[in-house]
């Protein structure tokens, strides 16, 4: 009798198609998001995260329609992020069928937005997404800062302090992406995951860099993550969700099977 760790496949969606960038740049098509999400639901994914990377207004409407379609077919929690700037955006996505929304840049611009959102909709549906990049020199103790705009803009905000602040504002969960690791398939930045997990009392989802199943295990066992997120290892059929769960369970990690 114990809470299971979660495996969360992530769909990066642009103009209604699943894509996967390497270090947020190079793009590869991975299919129709509703089809992909349904496949993960059938395989036993514990949640599904859908990040919209489209910048245009038309793209946003496409996203809402995609969420609606997805919510009719997926019966595990669905987190949606990308371009959420105000309370009305959250309302629209929750009405479309999202269970949680992930807030990133809008929180950097105005952290109180997280508090307002959590107050209005409850902490359980507000995920604070943090994109962190290592700024310490090799050999120094780890130090990370928040970057926005796909890693182009450095904010000078310390990632650990930032996570604690957003949790204090009522974020119910932290989605933590290492910008250095993302797309490399070299594994999570485990020191970053550990630093944030130790600093906050809300669940932490490790993201960025998964290339094999051992990386998922490391995120939980070494990083202390409550959930592990991955995209390309699942999208391109390298591993199925049941394979990942078997692998983690063999390493003593509690899984829903």
């Amino acid at each position: 009798m114990s809470l299971a760790k979660r495996i969360i496949p992530c769909l990066d969606v642009d103009q209604g198609r699943v894509v996967k960038g390497v270090k947020f740049l190079d793009i590869r098509d991975a299919g129709d998001p509703v089809e992909v999400a349904r496949r993960y639901d059938e395989q036993g994914a514990d949640e599904i995260t859908f990040l919209d990377i489209t910048a245009s207004v038309e793209g946003r409407d496409t996203m809402v329609r995609t969420v609606e379609r997805m919510a009719s077919e997926v019966f595990v929690p669905l987190t949606v992020g990308g371009g959420i700037r105000e309370v009305a955006d959250i309302r629209r996505l929750l009405n479309a069928g999202a269970d949680k929304v992930s807030i990133n840049s809008a929180a950097v611009k105005r952290p109180e937005f997280v508090a307002e959102a959590a107050d209005r909709f409850g902490s359980q549906c507000i995920v604070a997404a943090i994109d962190a990049k290592r700024v310490s020199a090799p050999g120094e103790p780890g130090r990370w800062e928040i970057f926005t705009h796909g890693g182009r803009n450095r904010t000078g905000i310390d990632a650990v302090a930032w996570a604690a602040k957003l949790a204090g504002y009522g974020a119910g969960e932290i989605l933590l992406t290492s910008m250095d690791a993302d797309g490399t398939k070299a594994g999570y930045d485990l020191a970053l995951v550990r630093a944030i997990s130790d600093a906050v009392n809300v669940p932490v989802i490790a993201s960025g860099g998964v290339g094999n199943l051992q990386h998922l295990a490391d995120g939980i066992l070494e990083g202390g993550a409550d959930a592990v997120l991955a995209a390309s290892i699942f999208h391109f059929g390298e591993y199925t969700i049941p394979q990942a769960k078997d692998y983690l369970a063999e390493r003593g990690i509690i899984m829903r099977r």
Binding site: M1, S2, L3, D46, S123, Q124, G172, E173, P203, A227
Partner: peptide, 23 residues
């Protein structure tokens, strides 16, 4: 949950979020 001594002692995260067994 945060007022439960065991939740604090075991550093359990609050909210209780995820898949748990139901007896």
């Amino acid at each position: 949950f945060s007022d439960v001594p065991a939740v604090r002692e075991q550093h359990l995260k609050v909210p209780h979020m995820g898949w748990n067994n139901v007896r």
